[in-house]
Write a protein that binds this DNA or RNA. Structure first.
Length: 244
DNA sequence: AAGTCGTTCAACCGCGTGACG
DNA sequence: ACGTCACGCGGTTGAACGACT
């Protein structure tokens, strides 16, 4: 049994919003607030479902939404947060004032994912080359120390830097709309939340093991990238000098 | 000029979850 | 305890547009 889509009810409009519909929605919310989304379209006189109205408002019409391209800092933040949180777009959006989960998701799929994949590939190629190099050295020198440590510190650094953007897909600074709909330029105001990483660590990582010993066991099975993030989570204050 | 392909992004859909009766 | 409702989230779609042939 499949639930019928909410917009399939007779007479409800789907597809792109018109300017008139936007005005009606904005005016109504400015006057009465959104209250009950389901009741809103009827009260406002819109032939849309409440879900569609909510989406339009939260993703496009809200006055505090930043319009324009993402800054390098924002992209960097998204990459770092995605590495930590995965596809939890709303959680990521909560760390980027003025940006919506939908927008972030789109940017990730269209720009950032590719960039991270490319960087990962480069990293793996680099690791492979280093491993080959080490094996060759092993053959010639038969050094026991080289076999116990397959990757050099330099490679580890390279891998951990894969989250650093090579270049923003746009160097244009962000803009934000005010209550009047006017557009103004903004700097990047990225405030940090002290509890944030603690929260991530406690919920995302520490839940995977119950004892400290288990934690170290988990740590020892990680690759370099995982180890980097593990360090970030466990020693966040020390390592997060590169800011979040 | 016309057709094809790839990219972008607004919008939709289905599901999970919390509030409430 | 259970059912219903409303909302929010993440995945997916499709129209619009530009680049390329």
């Amino acid at each position: 049994m499949v639930r019928a889509p909410c917009c399939e009810r007779m007479g409800l409009k789907k597809g792109p919003w018109t300017r008139e519909e936007d005005h009606i929605l904005i005016n109504y919310i400015n006057m009465y607030g959104h209250g009950n989304w389901r009741a809103l379209p009827k009260l406002a006189g819109l032939l849309r479902c409440g879900k569609s109205c909510r989406l339009r408002w939260t993703n496009y019409l809200r006055p505090d939404i930043k319009r324009g391209n993402f800054s390098t800092e924002e992209e960097e933040t998204i990459i770092q947060l995605h590495a930590a949180l995965g596809n939890r777009w709303s959680a990521i959006a909560a760390r980027l004032p003025g940006r919506t989960d939908n927008e972030i998701k789109n940017v990730w799929h269209t720009h950032l994912k590719k960039r991270v994949n490319e960087a990962e590939n480069k990293c793996h190629v680099s690791n492979f080359q280093q491993q080959t190099h080490n094996l060759k050295e092993e053959d010639t020198e038969s050094s026991p120390s080289s076999s116990s440590k397959p990757f050099s510190g330099r490679d580890q650094t390279n891998c951990s830097q894969l989250n650093s953007p090579q270049r923003s897909y746009s160097e244009i600074s962000s803009v934000i709309t005010n209550d009047n709909g006017d557009i103004k330029a903004t700097g990047n105001s990225q405030e940090t939340d002290e509890d944030f990483w603690t929260e991530i660590f406690s919920s995302e990582i520490s839940s995977q093991f119950t004892t400290v010993e288990e934690g170290y066991k988990y740590k020892s099975s990680m690759n370099d990238d995982m180890q980097f993030w593990f360090n970030v989570f466990t020693r966040g204050d020390e390592l997060l000098e590169y800011k979040l």
